[in-house]
Design a protein around this nucleic acid. Structure first.
Lengths: 191, 191
DNA sequence: CTCCAAAATTGACCGCGGTCAATAATAAAT
DNA sequence: ATTTATTATTGACCGCGGTCAATTTTGGAG
């Protein structure tokens, strides 16, 4: 019998990812069409779905990859000193998540893994963000509330972030920025 | 010229809503097909889209209607005495929002109005929920934190609720219930 | 009643995501 | 080199949401 995974497979997959990445760079995530991806990659349509469960699975890869890279930089950066500093540190994350309404929708849809064995790239970045937040709130220099467990504080940061971004896509609150809206919530976590 | 809106229009619209409601009662929201709705309503496919911008607009109506009814009862009920009581009061809301993954996705997608003049039913229920929460946290019997403005507390309740429900759809946290997960966040809002 | 312009309805058609039986490429076994 | 079992690829096809030019219905004006 053949090897579990052939070299050809990796090549095709790489071609699909490359084609998709180029198309996204040109026209954004929402405009991406599977037919355009396979055309550019030079494969048949069915091949796409042999590599990705559906179109969203590709989006999970692409968007999850970007998020993960952003979070890696956040983790490497200095621990913020206060709430305003924390908001500033999350700026790259906010910018990407608000770049397209569609992107944020995909992030929300894939934030929860449907099964333990299939935790996708985006779902992983939520854990990654939790770890970064936990590292921050447990840093001794940061004056966070000591009557709330750090795990809850970290989880709350994620909750507030999603909420603040959601509001951005609501016309009623478009006048305020995400950072302005996020700040008071984070301040509530500090003493 | 004819009247701005004919009686026929209202009848057709009612038939579409009735057909859709019946189908949802039978097979749930996710399984709803526009073709089935128009078949049951006895109209052509194009008629559907003359009444609703797209399928999601119908969902906005149906799901928004249910949410609004639930929130009306919440508003009429007694003001909860503490965090645990507050979680209990939100139970009907949680049950409906978690009844189908698809329902929660639609709620999130429509939570923000895209333009001020077109605030849909679901977007309105978010404001409705905010009002109920505000009423609760400003009630004198409730011992909430007094170092955080009530408006922020009320908005935070919504943020925590969405977060707790999101976690429900993540296999990693399926063992805990939404109510168990929500409670510690609400307790953080109390003194 | 007849005419007419606006409003409502129709259904063939399209776009695009996703399926699957048939086919081709691969690599190990002999 | 030939056979063979496994894996990868193909593209015609389907489901379903959404469009639009053509047609019918409506209700007021003359």
């Amino acid at each position: 019998m053949g090897k579990a995974v052939q070299a050809r497979t990796l090549k095709t997959r790489a071609k699909l990812i490359a084609a998709a990445t180029e198309l996204v760079a040109q026209s954004g995530y929402e405009a991406l069409r599977v037919e355009e991806v396979v055309l550019r990659a030079g494969v048949a349509k069915g091949t796409f779905f042999a590599h990705f469960k559906d179109k969203d699975a590709l989006m999970d890869q692409l968007i999850g990859g970007r998020l993960s890279a952003i979070l890696d930089e956040m983790a490497d950066g200095p621990v913020p000193r206060n709430a305003a500093d924390m908001v500033r540190a999350m700026r790259p994350l906010i910018q990407f998540a608000t770049s397209e309404r569609y992107v944020f929708d995909v992030i929300l849809r894939y934030s929860g893994a449907t099964a333990i064995e299939e935790i996708g790239p985006i779902a992983q970045t939520f854990m990654q963000h939790y770890q970064v937040s936990l590292k921050w709130v447990t840093h001794p220099d940061l004056q966070v509330r000591d009557d709330i467990p750090p795990e809850l504080l970290a989880e709350g940061v994620g909750s507030f972030l999603i909420h603040a971004i959601s509001m951005q896509f609501c016309a009623l609150h478009a006048s305020t920025t995400v950072e302005e809206r996020l700040l008071p919530f984070l301040e509530a976590w500090f003493k």
